[in-house]
């Protein structure tokens, strides 16, 4: 695209993004807000494509629109179950207390001021070449051809290592919300998929393709857009689909195998980092071995990211959540 057509497309996309965001915030119905939020995520992924940030676009589409969408829809249906008995009187009215219009206007002015200030700052930002050239100059030493993967796993390996630990910390925090008597159960979000229904059919049809796509994204990430996060997210989605279709039960949070899968990536990463420390620099990858090392770390990270993300979406183990208050924790029908 060039010239006027490109600008027109960008303008329309901006309008769609802002419209979807406004709808996600202001629409009355909570479920509608979540749907608009998912649509918003897809539009933002398109914006990343227009900025030629394909790695970010993949991540945004898979995580921002996909997994966050599943998480939010699951949250809406669970909230309905948890609060339905109290909200009878409220059913007709708005779910949340109304804000006074004076407070609304004050907030609007404040938010517009912050947004406007940021916009002004953005426009007056002095031109800068950024770190693009520095990355391009050192790309040959990184072992991979995709500059984003080179930054994630080699130049700024610290960030990625700590991020994988942040993911684990979030999962531990989430699990710690479980009450004592629920501990060791399977996490929620189980569905009753009708045999032969859409969910059950797609649950059998999509996983092979999704699995292939996920592994391909990791493998190709060394040279082209893709990588452990994008591939891991696709694999997490595949696992969630299999669990939601009732083909396989969610693992118990006390399962040792599960815990190994969760820490495999960070452990491998730390191991490689320590080996680097012995050779000179922590997390330093010697150019000759950089590519196999990066692929090894990515393989471990993909497994851990997929497992952690899927479990984050499933939520804390909670009794009486997926199966109704009186049913014990039993295997779903196969």
């Amino acid at each position: 695209m060039s010239g006027l057509a490109a600008t027109g497309f960008d303008l329309m996309l901006c309008a769609l993004i802002l419209g979807a965001a406004l709808a996600a915030i202001a629409v009355r119905d909570l479920f509608g807000a979540v749907v608009f939020f998912i649509v918003y995520g897809v539009f933002v992924a398109l914006a990343w494509l227009r900025l030629e940030a394909i790695d970010v676009a993949l991540t945004e589409a898979a995580l921002g629109a996909g997994l966050t969408g599943v998480l939010m829809i699951g949250a809406v249906s669970r909230l309905e179950r948890l609060t339905s008995r109290d909200q009878d009187q409220d059913a007709a009215g708005p779910q949340s207390p109304p804000t006074s219009s004076a407070a609304r206007i004050a907030t609007m002015v404040g938010a517009a001021g912050i947004g406007g200030g940021l916009a002004w700052g953005f426009i007056t930002l002095p031109p800068s070449a950024g770190l693009q050239l520095a990355v391009a100059e050192n790309l040959a030493a990184s072992g991979v051809e995709n500059p984003v993967t080179a930054v994630l796993l080699n130049f700024r390996g610290w960030d990625t290592l700590l991020e994988s630990i942040v993911l684990l910390a979030a999962l531990i925090a989430l699990w710690s919300l479980a009450r004592d008597q629920d501990w060791g159960r399977r996490p929620g979000l189980r569905q009753h998929a009708r045999p032969g229904g859409v969910m059950a059919t797609f649950g059998r049809l999509l996983p092979p393709f999704g699995f292939l796509l996920g592994v391909y994204l990791v493998w190709t990430g060394s040279a082209q857009p893709g990588g452990a996060f994008q591939g891991g997210t696709v694999l997490a989605a595949v696992w969630l689909l299999v669990m939601m279709a009732g083909l396989k039960a969610a693992p118990r949070v006390s399962s040792t195998r599960l815990r190994w899968a969760l820490i495999a990536g960070p452990l491998l990463f730390i191991g490689v980092g320590l080996a680097g420390a012995v050779a000179g620099t922590f997390l330093g990858l010697p150019t000759a071995y950089a590519k196999p090392l990066i692929l090894t770390i990515e393989a471990g990270l993909t497994l851990s990211i997929a497992a952690t993300l899927a479990l984050l979406v499933l939520g804390a183990p909670m009794a009486g959540d997926g199966l109704g208050p009186d049913q014990p924790d039993k295997e779903p029908a196969r």
């Binding site: 921002g64 990355v135 130049f155 804390a316």
Partner: peptide, 27 residues
């Protein structure tokens, strides 16, 4: 060229951390 790869890497990290924080928030 395209978007700064360092910015891209930081944003990818940010998106993943945002999902983790959102999942904890939902919990």
């Amino acid at each position: 060229a395209s978007t700064d790869p360092v910015a891209q890497a930081l944003i990818i990290t940010g998106i993943v951390v945002a999902l983790a924080a959102t999942a904890f928030g939902v919990g």
